[in-house]
């Protein structure tokens, strides 16, 4: 199963837009959108500690989220 966890698009930009336009906008498409009914016996994190920190037993369900704060405007 391969998919990206974020999708980006280029919104319409008018030359009359008052704020400096953001040319690319992105949104989350977390893994649960693609898995449907989770199959049996899929790979688990090697240690319980990693699973605990990730919030899930299964790497394929893990979706890290990084703050957008301070992101540079293109």
């Amino acid at each position: 199963m391969s998919f990206t966890l974020t999708k980006c698009y280029s919104p319409f930009v008018s030359k009359f837009d008052p704020c400096k336009p953001i040319l690319t906008k992105c949104y989350s498409t977390p893994p649960n959108l693609y898995i449907g009914f989770q199959p049996n016996n899929i790979e688990q994190f090697p240690t319980a500690r990693e699973a605990l920190y990730a919030g899930t037993l299964w790497p394929c369900l893990y979706d890290p989220y990084y703050s957008k704060r301070g992101e540079s405007i293109e």
Binding site: F3, T4, K7, C8, Y9, Y27, T29, L33, Y34
Partner: peptide, 9 residues
Amino acid sequence: AVEILKEER
């Protein structure tokens, strides 16, 4: 619409 937004561009 969800399927469209899920598609890899």
